[in-house]
């Protein structure tokens, strides 16, 4: 399968990329890892007029901690998250999520920014971002702005990124408490999209009381979803079985899964 014809540019600076985006208008698409976009182009589900390949722009791939904030460059590959000792030691949720995304070859190219900017509720990282209450940095010719993750996903393939802008960084502030996180998904086979997935981050004080709860759900809603009632059910408890069962029941009641080949609505709610 061969995509429809398109033009191609590979700018070597963000400024050059912004100028191209402005010049070409909304028919131009950003090519990062390309492992969602190129398959869609081959199936002619996407037919961009022009691709702006950002892979030759230096300085967009990094994982670093500044004070209490984790900063990840949008062009960071899944494999680099998987192999980062910083991520491994402090944010294991990324390891859980990354290793469940597609397969090793895809993770060699797929990027964290792309996984989020694609705006697909079936992708895994959006739920992780919700659990961690991430803030994303979006840049354009006029400078950069930040958007809280709860304001980022607008609809199917629709996000807060405006024409002429590029997602450049993901920021996560670590709560000042005992903190743990994990991601789990039910999938039909290795590398499949989630039938349903859940990302959870919890913080506890010295007395074992939950002071932070972030819960994001994958592929059970039109947009990546925060399980608000589930979070509230955990805060202030010592995370006993009763609180956890209530949180799970709320998540099951509040999600809006659609029936598809991966399972019907009832089955997905049960997950």
């Amino acid at each position: 399968m061969i995509p429809e014809q398109f033009g191609y540019s590979a700018p070597t600076s963000l400024q050059e990329a912004f100028s191209l985006l402005q010049e070409l208008g909304e028919d131009a698409k950003i090519l990062a890892g390309g492992h969602s976009l190129i398959p869609m182009m081959k199936l002619r589900l996407a037919t961009p007029f022009h691709l702006i390949d950002i892979n030759k722009i230096p300085g967009l791939a990094y994982i670093r901690e500044e004070g209490n904030t984790l900063k990840i460059g949008a062009l960071t590959r899944e494999v680099d998250l998987e192999e980062s000792t910083l991520i491994h030691d402090k944010y294991p949720i990324f390891i859980d999520a990354s290793k469940l995304i597609a397969d090793p070859q895809v993770r060699n190219f797929g990027t964290l920014g792309g996984n989020i900017a694609h705006g697909d509720a079936a992708n895994d990282h959006p739920a992780v971002m919700i659990a961690l209450r991430a803030v994303v940095e979006i840049s354009g010719a006029g400078g950069s702005r930040t958007v809280a993750i709860d304001d980022f996903f607008h609809g199917f393939y629709m996000t807060a990124i405006e024409q002429g802008e590029i997602l450049t960084e993901i920021r996560i502030s670590r709560p000042q408490s005992k903190f743990g996180s994990a991601y789990h998904k039910v999938e039909r086979k290795v590398g499949d999209y989630a039938t349903a997935g859940v990302a959870i981050a919890l913080g506890m004080d010295d007395k074992g009381i939950c002071t932070y709860a972030g819960i994001g759900l994958t592929n059970v809603n039109a947009t990546p979803m925060r399980a608000e009632r589930s979070e509230a059910a955990l805060i202030g408890t010592n995370l006993n079985a009763e609180a956890i069962n209530l949180a799970a029941r709320h998540a099951s009641e509040d999600c809006q899964p659609s029936s598809d080949l991966r399972g019907d609505e009832e089955y997905k709610r049960h997950q």
Partner: peptide
């Protein structure tokens, strides 16, 4: 031809890649 089977795997600067999902122009 849909990024699933891996028969088209090649190394690009040492990284294994499914070459049905990479544009030739990206390998410049």
């Amino acid at each position: 031809d849909t990024t699933s089977c891996g028969a088209c795997t090649v190394l690009i600067d040492g990284r294994s890649a499914k070459s049905c999902t990479i544009l030739a122009i990206q390998a410049d």
